[in-house]
């Protein structure tokens, strides 16, 4: 399908057209940008760098019920994971790419019905990073691009008073069809303008890291003193992992209330002290040194060795939001130099 143009003045109409889907868009409250279901197109806040919590939460909610049970009843009541046809409007290419990467895990030796169902019914309409990306963004070092389309169904490029609309997949075509009355054909000049922005955005990325050979190298640095150094300041909170678009660890707990209960799964973080704690009291990752090492190794060694992709998309949330300025690029640089 050829590129189309959506005039910004008609954005509200476009979002209105999409309200037949479950429509999520970035919204702002205080200084926090979150993807939320919007009823009024005016709630959408598209002039943003990136959302505080990645849109992974839409397909992989922080807490979700798996099934419900009642005392005296042998049958479980399973929950239908479907949330209905969903459109996420205006997410960043890195976060969409993260979903494509994490999907490989949820579709691996066990096919996770919850994740896959919602992933299948979700259409991702990306918004290219056409203004200069944030100072810590490093998507180009890990295989992404500010205008990348991996994982996306539609890519929008902000051209000032209009968006260039590029349909990438069949799911995307469905959304474009819903908007067909609002779209016009793109002129050659529009495509050129977008291509120029793309090159500029790529140049605007200032931080880089060479990832070649990291996968093997990390394993050889198991007892290297660098881990103690880089983790010394770590507080053991979950900021880096909870706000990471590719982190996908979860815990499963039963919650019982009188004679009924539910089994729910909820995000977990490898930076928490009870994450690998055994019932015996033994913890194979007893300190933050081992936990930090695991976080880096998982992203840059274990995951790529299984699935071929680095489980990091360079969104830089962990760098920007770490309370003590533990910087994943700084750690990787030390790994490269070690």
């Amino acid at each position: 399908m050829a590129e189309k143009i959506l005039i910004k003045e008609r954005l509200g109409d476009a979002l209105g057209e999409l309200s037949k889907f479950r429509l999520l868009a970035p919204t702002k409250s205080d200084e926090v940008v979150l993807f939320k279901q919007i009823d009024d197109p005016a709630e959408a806040y598209l002039d943003y760098l990136n959302s505080t919590v990645p849109p992974k939460r839409v397909v992989f909610p922080q807490t979700e019920t798996l099934f419900k049970f009642r005392a005296g009843e042998p049958d479980l009541e399973e929950k239908d994971p479907s949330e209905g046809e969903t459109v996420i409007w205006g997410l960043r290419p890195c976060d969409a790419r993260a979903m494509a990467i994490v999907e490989k895990l949820f579709n691996w030796d066990y096919e996770d019905p919850y994740y896959l169902k919602r992933r299948e019914e979700t259409t991702l309409v990306g918004l290219a990073c056409s203004s200069i990306p944030s100072v810590n963004c490093f998507c180009t070092s890990v295989g992404g691009h500010p205008f990348g389309t991996e994982g996306l169904d539609v890519l929008l490029t902000d051209l000032g008073d209009k968006y260039l609309v590029e349909v990438v997949s069949d799911k995307g075509a469905k959304v474009a069809e819903a908007l067909s009355g609002l779209l016009a054909d793109a002129a050659g000049a529009d495509k050129e303008a977008a291509a120029k922005l793309s090159t500029e955005a790529e140049k605007g990325i200032s931080r880089t890291i060479g990832t070649e050979g990291l996968q093997e190298k990390l394993l050889n640095l198991w007892e290297n003193p660098l881990w103690k150094k880089v983790s010394a300041a770590c507080l053991g909170c979950g900021v880096c992992t909870y706000l990471c678009p590719t982190c996908h660890c979860f815990d499963i707990q039963d919650e019982v209330e009188e004679d009924e209960g539910r089994r729910a799964r909820m995000w977990d973080s490898c930076m928490f002290c009870e994450y690998t704690l055994h019932g015996s009291g033994h913890n194979p990752r007893p300190t933050r040194r081992e936990r930090t090492r695991n976080r880096i190794n998982h992203k840059y060694s274990y995951f790529p060795s299984k699935f071929g992709d680095i489980a990091c998309v360079g969104c830089a949330r962990c760098i920007n939001l770490c309370p003590v300025n533990i910087d994943i690029l700084d750690i990787l640089q030390q790994v490269v130099e070690a």
């Binding site: 019920t65 929950k79 209330e257 009924e260 209960g261």
Partner: peptide, 11 residues
């Protein structure tokens, strides 16, 4: 009480 009562088992 409706402030932070557990709205249990909200599916």
């Amino acid at each position: 009480m409706d402030q932070f009562k557990r709205r249990q088992l909200n599916w």
